[in-house]
Write a protein that binds this DNA or RNA. Structure first.
Lengths: 187, 187
DNA sequence: CGCGCGATTGAGTAATTTCAAATCTAGTGG
DNA sequence: CCACTAGATTTGAAATTACTCAATCGCGCG
C-alpha cells in the first residue's frame, strides 16, 4: 500500500528509507465501497486523498438538481475538495466512489508539517500542482474550442482506460453534455 | 517595481531584507507595448512572468483560425505557457499584451534554484499553484454548469475591473461564445 | 471628412437540450 | 437456470440555444 505512494513520489524526487518512513507517518489508510461518499457536500474536509486503488468522481450539484463532474480520479491521483480543505471551510463538492476505493489520507496539519520538514516533498507537491494546473488548462481549452463530439474523442484518446471503467452517463456529466447527446455519437 | 513583488510574496510568507534581495536577484524586468507578444506560439518559453502593470491574454489559436483565451492576467498575476516553460518545449499558446505591460521574468533555472535555496519561496509558489488550480476548477465548473449568459454574469461579478478594461470581443473568446451572442445579452 | 475597428442587429442554420418512450443489461432471488 | 427489476442506454421529435454570415451602426482619430 505505502509502497505505491513511495513509487509515485520517487517518480519526481528520491527518498531515503528514513525519509520515506517519515513521510508515511503522516498518512493513514481508509477503504470505501462503491457508491460511498469520501467527501460530503456541506461538511468540513479533513483530508486530502491519494488513491491507491479504485475510482472516484468529484461532483458539483447545481441548483436545478443536475450533477456535474469536476474530475475523475483513479490510481496514483490526488484528490479532494481542495478549496474547502485548504481554507478549512465546508465542502461545495462531493467526492464519491465509482468503484471500491482505497486511499491514503493526509490532514492539512500533517500536510503543512510534512512540506515544512521535508523540502523534497514540498518540491514534489509543487510539481504535481503545476501539472495539475496544466491539465486543468487543457480541459478549459477543450471546452472552449471543441463541440461535444470532439471532446468525447479527445477524452477517449487521452484516458482510454478511464472511459472503459465509467458509465456513459457519468462521462456526459464530465464532458458537459446531456447523456442523450453523448449517446448519439458514442460509437 | 520590485517592491510590488515583495508585497505580493509577503501576503503569503514574510521575508527578511537579505532574503528578498536574494529573491530579487533571480528576476529581470521587461517592458512590452500593447499588441506585442511576450510569448510567441512555436518558440521556446524562457521565462515565467510576474505582471507588475498592464494586462495580457494567453491565447490558443485553433486549426480553423479562431482564437480562444485561456486566461487574462493583470497586476500581481503570474503567467506563462507553463507546460512549454516547465518542459522546455515549444509554446502552443501565445501571450499577448492588451495594454502596455511591465513584467518581472524568471528563467526556469533560476526558478528551480530559488525554490531549492529558499524554502519559503517554494512554499509561496505551492500556495499560488494550489489556488491557481482552484480557480481553474471554478472556471471548468462555470463552463459545465452555465450557459453563455450566466457565464458572462459570473465574469462581471468576479472580475468587474477586468471587464472594464477588455473589449467585448475578447471577453467572448474567454467565455467560449461568439461576439454576436455576447453582444445580444451584454447590457 | 472619412477611414477603421469594435459593437450591434437580423435572418437563417446548426448543434444541443428536453421530454418521452423504447430497449438493453447486469444482478437478484426463486 | 430463468424471470424480474432497476438502472443505464438508445431513439425520436420538438424546442431552445448559440453560431454564422451579412449588413449596419457608432465613435475616435488622423
Amino acid at each position: 500500500m505505502y509502497e505505491t505512494l513511495r513509487q509515485h513520489i520517487e517518480k519526481t524526487v528520491s527518498l531515503s528509507e528514513e525519509e520515506f518512513a517519515f513521510v508515511q507517518g503522516h498518512f493513514s489508510i481508509k477503504k470505501y465501497k462503491k457508491h460511498q461518499f469520501i467527501i460530503q457536500e456541506g461538511e468540513l474536509v479533513n483530508y486530502s486523498y491519494f488513491i491507491l486503488s479504485g475510482l472516484t468522481k468529484l461532483v458539483h450539484n447545481d441548483a436545478s438538481g443536475k450533477s456535474h463532474i469536476v474530475s475523475f480520479a483513479m490510481e496514483d491521483w490526488w484528490e479532494s475538495d481542495f478549496y474547502a480543505y485548504l481554507t478549512q471551510t465546508r465542502a461545495t463538492l462531493s467526492l464519491e466512489c465509482i468503484e471500491d476505493t482505497e486511499v491514503l489520507c493526509i490532514s492539512l496539519a500533517n500536510y503543512r508539517k510534512l512540506c515544512a520538514d521535508l523540502q523534497k516533498v514540498e518540491a514534489f507537491f509543487l510539481e504535481k500542482a503545476h501539472f495539475g494546473n496544466i491539465a486543468a488548462q487543457r480541459r478549459i481549452l477543450s471546452l472552449l474550442t471543441s463541440n461535444a463530439k470532439e471532446r468525447y474523442a479527445q477524452l477517449l484518446k487521452q484516458y482510454p482506460t478511464l472511459v472503459q471503467r465509467v458509465p456513459k452517463s457519468l462521462l456526459a456529466a464530465y464532458l458537459g453534455v446531456s447523456r442523450e447527446t453523448l449517446s448519439r455519437f458514442a460509437r
